[in-house]
């Protein structure tokens, strides 16, 4: 699995989990499918970008930081806008979990063995 694909998969999976947590907030529970789709899409986009950037990086702390910033940037437009039904802004409730997904994807793309890493190891041996 290459780094962008790894970012895409993990970002998507964690995005689904992120969306599912909305079930615990009764006032938005009826919008759950849209929330899941939104956070999954957000996770996929952030994961892909983090994966692409990870190809250039060789540092776990830098990978985590970049993942966090990219996910925060992708999440920002959604977090900054008020909820159309309630009119309330859930900025921190959205941006913090989104950034958390980015940080974890950033860590994983540096730490998990990927196809490029494997082939470069083989070449070194």
């Amino acid at each position: 699995m290459s780094k962008p694909v790894l970012g895409l998969v993990l970002g998507g999976v964690l995005g689904i989990f992120d969306g599912l947590t909305a079930w615990f907030t009764p006032e938005v529970r009826n919008e759950l499918p849209f929330i899941i789709m939104g956070s999954t899409g957000k996770g996929l986009v952030a994961g892909l970008l983090i994966g692409l950037l990870a190809r250039k990086l060789k540092s776990v702390p830098l990978g985590v930081l970049c993942g966090l910033l990219i996910a925060a940037a992708v999440t920002y437009p959604i977090a900054a806008n008020p909820d159309p039904n309630t009119g309330k802004v859930y900025f921190w409730q959205i941006i913090l979990p989104g950034s958390l997904v980015g940080a974890i994807v950033g860590f994983a793309t540096q730490k998990l063995p990927t196809k490029q890493a494997e082939s470069s190891r083989t070449a070194a041996a």
Partner: peptide
């Protein structure tokens, strides 16, 4: 990784 995410998400 997934467990870490879930724990942190629960705390949040």
């Amino acid at each position: 990784l997934i467990a870490t995410y879930l724990v942190l998400r629960t705390i949040l």
